[in-house]
Design a protein around this nucleic acid. Structure first.
Length: 124
DNA sequence: GCGCTGACCGCCA
DNA sequence: CTGGCGGCCAGCG
């Protein structure tokens, strides 16, 4: 198998795929931050590229891009943009609650999902 | 080939 | 809580 031979430009495309896969694995009703997606895809600190990867993702994949938000627990689009409204609508449809325009990451975030597995629904 | 921008993050004041 | 600064890489004029 080639492990070192796939370095270079191929690694970038591979990473894009990885990002898309990670995003597609996000269960409904939960969200991930850009930093977490970058970390889970094996490249901590590449949060900025995650946004570009999502933007360049083909629509065919039906990627749940709306489940990716920023570390502040807020939607990264400008509040007056159509994307912001679209994303908020999609998330609310999955049961995600917006509190004053922000999402409680302790409850809907990745860590919240882990805690829920360990502690149940005691997180309220 | 250079420089700025971007669905960002984390740290610090 | 807000704002500013540096860092990250790809894309575009």
């Amino acid at each position: 198998m080639n492990q070192d031979t796939e370095k270079g430009k191929n690694a970038d495309v591979n990473w894009y795929k990885n990002v898309w896969k990670v995003v597609s694995e996000i269960p409904p009703g939960h969200v991930l931050t850009y930093g977490e997606v970058a970390r889970l895809s094996g490249n901590p600190g590449w949060a900025r590229r995650v946004s570009q990867a999502l933007r360049r993702a083909p629509r065919k994949m039906k990627l749940p891009w709306h489940r990716v938000i920023n570390s502040q627990g807020k939607i990264s689009f400008p509040e007056d943009s159509s994307g912001w409204t679209r994303q908020k609508d999609l998330l609310e449809d999955e049961g995600v609650i917006f509190l004053n325009g922000k999402i409680n990451l302790e409850r809907f975030g990745y860590r919240g999902a882990v805690d829920r597995l360990l502690w149940g629904e005691e997180i309220l």
